[in-house]
Structures are given as C-alpha cells and as structure tokens.
Design a protein around this nucleic acid. Structure first.
Lengths: 198, 198, 198, 198
DNA sequence: CTTTAACCGAGACGGTACGTCCGGTCTTATG
DNA sequence: CATAAGACCGGACGTACCGTCTCGGTTAAAG
C-alpha cells in the first residue's frame, strides 16, 4: 500500500511531543492562532512529520484532545442507588472540568473542527461520544430496574435532556456554568415540566 | 471621533452586496475556505471597504447571518392553548430550517466564530439568543397561567431542556434531526423521567 | 490582460532593494545558497512581491546582474589607431572586472542560469552579448578600413577567437586570468598559427 | 581508518546503477529538477548508499559524466599530415557529440557544478581537461615539427583559440554549432587576422 | 561453517526553501 | 472625494528534498 507510512516505524516520543505541543500552544495562543508550523516548532519537529501522520489539523487536535482528556475513560458512572445524586455528581464534575482553561480550550478547538468536518465528527462520536453515552445509558437502565426511572422513557432522549444543556451553555455562553444550574437541570428533568396532580 | 467611520456615509447597497456575497460563498465553498478577499471579489468591492466597516471576519459573518436569517424575527411563539403541540410546531420548524444547506452553513460558521470569541458570543446572545429566549419564556408563562406548566419550574432550565437537544444534535451530529425526535423531546420533558405513581 | 500586474503600479524602491539584496547575498553566501526567501528577507520585502515581478530566479539574477554591471554600457571600444593595443586594453579591463569577487559571483550566477534556460540565454544574448558584439565588430571594421585586419576575415569568428578564450578560462578555471595571457591571445590571433614564409 | 568506507566492499553493480540513473534522469527531467532522492529511487537504491560514496551532487554528476563520456578517452588526435583537416575533423566530432541531447545535458550539468565549485573544477581539469589538452598539444607539436605550425606559438593559447570558441558558443548559445563554423575557426586561427602582405 | 561487521534498501526524522494564498495596510487612478 | 483595484509586507500553508539516522536483511571476509 504505497503512500501509507508504516506505523511500526513511527517514533512514539515524537508523536507525544507533537500532541503535547498542540495542547500547550492551544493554551497559550488559542485556537485561531494555532498553526501547524507553531506546533512543529514547539515540539522540535519537522512539519513533514506532522503531515505524515495526521490528515488534517482537525485530526491532530482530536487526537491531542483524546490524549489530554484521557482516551479510555471507560469508568462506569457512579451508582449509589440515588439516581439524582449520581447524575448531579457527574454533571458537576463535567462543569469543573470545563473550568480548567486548558481543557476548555482544547475541547473548544475540537468542537470547532467537528462543526465543519463530517468525518471528524463521525470519529468524535464513535470514539468519545458513543462510549460515554453507553455508560450513561447503562446507569439509566439500572435506574429503571430499581424503579427510579420510568420504563417507557426513551434513553437517548433522556441523556440529551440531562447532559445537553451543560454543553450548550458552555458552547454558546448563554449563561454561567454552575453546580446549581446542573442540579436544577437534573431535578427538572426527572420531575418533568407538567404540573403534578395533587 | 477619529477612526470611527461615519455610518451615515455607509453605502447600503455595498453593505448588502458584501453580506450576500458572504452567505453565497459560505454556501459554495464552506466556512474553512471563506476568505475576506473572496467576499470582496464576489461582492465587487475593495477589500478596504470590508475592513472599514467590520472589525473581524466573525462580526461580518454574524451580521451576514442576521441579515440572512431575518434579524427582527420577533414574532411571538404560537399559542393554540396546547403547549405540547405548540412546542413541537416550533421545534419542527427549527429542524426544517437547519435542513436548508445555506442556513445550515451560515449558522455553523457563526457558531465557529462564537466558540472562540467572547465578544461575539456576547453579541450573539444579546441580539439573537436572548430575544428568542424571551419569546419562549413568554409562551411558557402563558402555559403556567393555564395550568399546563408547573408553577415552580425554572423557565431558563425548561427552555434549555426543550430547545437545547436539537441544537446539540445538530452541532455534534450525534444523531439524525427528525420531527419524531423533537416530538419525543417535548413529550419527555413535559412528563419527566421519573415514574408516575399510580 | 488579467494576471499580469500593471507595471505602472510597481514600486521602484522595492524593485531596487530586491536587486541589491540579490547581488549582496550572492557575494555573501554564493549562488548555491542563494534563495528567494533570503533575498526577500534581506530586501525587507514579501516573497510575493518577488514572484509578482519575476518569472524565475534566473530572470531575477539576470536583471540584478544587468543593474550591477551597468545595463547601457554602450560605450564604443577605444580606437587609438593601433588595433592590437586597443584589444589588449579592453581584454585587460575584462580580466580586471572578473577579478572583483562581487562581479565574479554575479556573472557566474547568471551563467549558471543561462546554461539550462534557453529563454534566459536568448535574453542574455539579446540584451548583453549582441550589443557588446556589435561594438566589437565596429572596431574590427574600422581596423579593416585602415588595413590592420584582413578584408576577408569573418568578424564573428574573429570576435570569438579574441574574446572567447578569456571567458573560457574564467568559466572552466583552466588557467590563471592574467594580462600576459590576454596579450598573448591578441598577438597570436592577429598573427595566426601558421608559419610565415620568410 | 574509521568513517572511510572500504572501497573493496563497494558493490559495482549498485555504483553503475546510480551513475546510469543519474544520466537517465538528467535526460528526462533536466539538471534543475535532478535530485538525489530521484536518483536513488530510479536506481532502486537507498539514499544513504549515495551519500556513502559521493561527497556532493557535483561529484556524482562528474563521475556519471565520466562514465557516460568514456573516462579513458586517451586516444591520440588523428595525424594525417594535414593539420587543418585533422583539427576540423576533431572539432566536427565535438560538435556532433554536443548534438546528442543526453551528452548535452550531462555536460551542461557538469559545467554548472564546476562554475561554483573550485574543487570539482580542479578535478575536472585534472581528469578530463588536462589529458585532452596534452593530446592536443602533442598534435600541435607534431605540426610544428613538419612546419605546419609556427615554432614560436604558445601552444596553450593556440589550443584555447582553436577549441574555446566551440565550447563558448555551446555554453552561451551565442550562435549555431555547425561544421562550417568550426571550419572557419580553424582556417581563421591558422591564417591569422592580419592582412598578408602580397 | 559459523560469526560478525559492513553494506544495502527503505524510509522516518529535523530542517530549509519552495511557490501559493490570504490577512490587513497603504496607494493610486477613476468615476 | 469615495471607492475598486490591487501592490505591499508578513506569515502560514502543504510539498519536495536535503542530509542524517535507524531499522531489518543480505553478503562476504574472518575466525
């Protein structure tokens, strides 16, 4: 298969230096001023080495984000028996994470790339979003088994309603990302918007 | 006030030509290949004319999107007396709008700019997001008055839960944007995730 | 005529800065290490400005050489009445010129470009070689009129025999370029190789 | 002697493949686009193998030219007793040789390298130019012995006058390289430029 | 008949320069 | 007198080669 470099030959030290440099520069200069040339310079690497292994700036940023955020974060969601409490715990952790400027900038960069790149978006969903969603679904199914979640609720929709608002506020900056806010989201979602008959 | 051009001198024909050219080019070549030079060429305008009136590519795109999407879309949400039906109507319309490639691309471009530009994000919230949110709040308050929405529900949260999921799916491409999906969102949000006691 | 920049718009200060930088760099680093980027840097000029006005490194070097060597060196050859003395004078001057490292390097650079570029070679012949050759021919014709040069000698050949050897020695470094050498060339050429019958 | 490869170990097949590839590529793409990488690829050879045995592109081209032109072309010049005829024969052969595009390109490449590389020029003179010059000198001495060449003519100068013009025309493309031209050069050189007294 | 040192093909690597494109500023000639 | 046209400096793009390096796999002389 000509033109495809042999991954066995790949220098792992160089690969890590590039990913680290990408995250570092994102933190320093921000996404709009992030350049391949700058990453190569910071990593002490030839530009060609970057172009050899990554198809686009997007895929590099994506991989850098994965490496930074911890790729195989496949830890299951907590299950203390109290669904609301567990969801709040997870969402508060997400809020705290987004409070870290480095994490914030890296994730913003990745989202910018995703917005206009179908393929990358697919990869993002497959490698990050889908696995996380599965974990969430698992927790919700457990809640259904113990009668804390209605049997007939569509889990995909439930997840979107619980976890979507945080991401939205963060992306669109429509309001402050606080623990209080996520608590309200969880409570409101569980309870529903309709009045309860007394 | 030196350096601040006199808005009276501004040629409206030229301004509209530039905004139209921006939207057209977005549709043709996509956001990543959208350039000021290209816009100037397409609009039959000198580059300087663009730089004179807009501070950044972002603010140009923002204004172009406003012009394209209809700035003063201040029409109130429908109120047929049936909250669920009205919400579904509005959300289905949003989905349909996002189905138009030109609208899709323009809105994506604007979001990319917002993600990394605090000022622009502020402007977006102030000029688009906030007014729309007020209309939605108004509709929800009406629902509260007629007993279709719980009195103690935080409206901000309710709006995020109802309208956020669509935006999220669209931005992250986590799933297809269908009428069924928004119907489910509305129903689930109104009813809540918890089981109803019999 | 699209794509062809308007020469009227051309900045002459910039043009001269580029040509000067080219000659300077040739003197400093030599032809093999002469780069467009280096010239642009030295001249304080954007690369594009060079690419806008010159089709190749060769044509830039050619023009730089012309500017350096004095384009309109249209002064006639000396005519003191003594052909041999006049030729020696001119050839000695050529030798002295080639002794100047800057002139040497510039002319070598130009010759390297000519060797592999037909078009440039044509331009060189038309703008430098041919005019100089005409002046030489003029002097030789004068010599014919006063009986110092055989009537039936082919002037083109005579010029090649008189002026070629110096250029050859210089290009191929087959021997030292001295005043003695050019004197010998002139004397030998005039007299011929055959023995004189007594 | 560390660092100096053992010439005995050298694969002659590989060496020839490299030299052949160099000449072939010169013919195909021309000197300016001739690259070490291209030669290695064409020869089916690792780049390192080239760098191991040749110090520079110039020395590789030089050796390739030698191999192509026939290194030990130590055959003496013809001596039919008629100096003018013999010289014309040799010069016509040179002209014919330069008419072959492959020979032309190879020799141009070598000359380009020589122009800016003193060491290589020295090697060229020592290995090619000097031996050829000796053969020419030998022929001229023979002519002197039979009274076809003046006793007091400086042979170095005579050779430059006879053989230089052809090389010059070829290098500078100042005129067509024809048999007629070399005939004229020989006749004019032998006879001299001065008028003969009747 | 093994060892072992060098060569060899392949190609990744840190670099430099290429020639192009565009950003943002400044100049000019036209309408 | 504003404005289109576009030259200008700067800098990043993605590509091509440079010359060095490392990697397995021959190959051939030395043990």
């Amino acid at each position: 298969m000509p033109g495809v470099p042999d991954p066995n030959r790949r220098s792992d030290a160089t690969r890590r230096a590039i990913l680290t440099a990408a995250i570092d520069l994102l933190g320093e200069v921000g996404y709009p001023k992030l350049t391949i040339e700058g990453i190569a310079r910071t990593a002490g690497v030839g530009k060609q080495t970057i172009y050899r292994w990554w198809a686009s700036k997007g895929s590099l940023i994506f991989e850098a984000f994965l490496a930074f955020a911890g790729d195989g974060e496949t830890a299951a969601l907590p299950d203390t028996g109290d669904l609301a409490a567990d969801l709040k715990l997870v969402l508060r952790a997400t809020v705290d994470e987004l409070d870290d400027p480095r994490y914030d900038k890296a994730m913003r960069a990745m989202h910018v790339e995703i917005v206009n790149d179908h393929l990358l978006a697919g990869e993002y969903v497959a490698r990050l979003e889908k696995p996380m969603r599965e974990l969430k679904k698992e927790r919700l199914r457990a809640a259904q088994r113990v009668g804390q979640l209605a049997e007939d609720v569509e889990l995909e929709v439930a997840i979107d309603m619980l976890f979507g608002p945080v991401l939205n506020r963060w992306l669109q900056r429509t309001g402050p990302l606080t623990h209080d806010y996520v608590d309200q989201v969880v409570d409101t979602a569980l309870r529903g918007l309709k009045p309860r008959k007394p």
